[in-house]
Amino acid sequence: MPKSVMCGNELTVYLSGDIDHHSARKIREATDALIQQNQPGVLKLNFGGVNFMDSSGIGLIMGRYRMMLLYGGSVKVVNVPDNLRRIMELSGLSSLNVFERSGEFCESVK
């Protein structure tokens, strides 16, 4: 289960390790369970701990984007490491306005 913090109506999920087709399934299931449980208005995916990501990570973001849209919410992608920048740019996700520089103001709130 990835580390997560619920703050106001904002759920931050801290992703870590490698995101590929193999690991994306577990991350997807865990994240979706957290969304169902917390019903946030904003889902923040924090990529700070991610070492590697291929296009499975793009699918993961797009899938959560659609899901949150269905609930009337939104997705923010934060803390993207330099080595993931190119694949994020290539994905066209920037046109969905999901990128945010950073914003971990509610660290202490459980």
Partner: peptide, 15 residues
């Protein structure tokens, strides 16, 4: 249904 983004070859070509 597997949430494939359809970007596999685009990534290979870009990288």
């Amino acid at each position: 249904e597997e949430e494939r983004a359809g970007l596999g070859f685009a990534v290979m070509q870009s990288f």
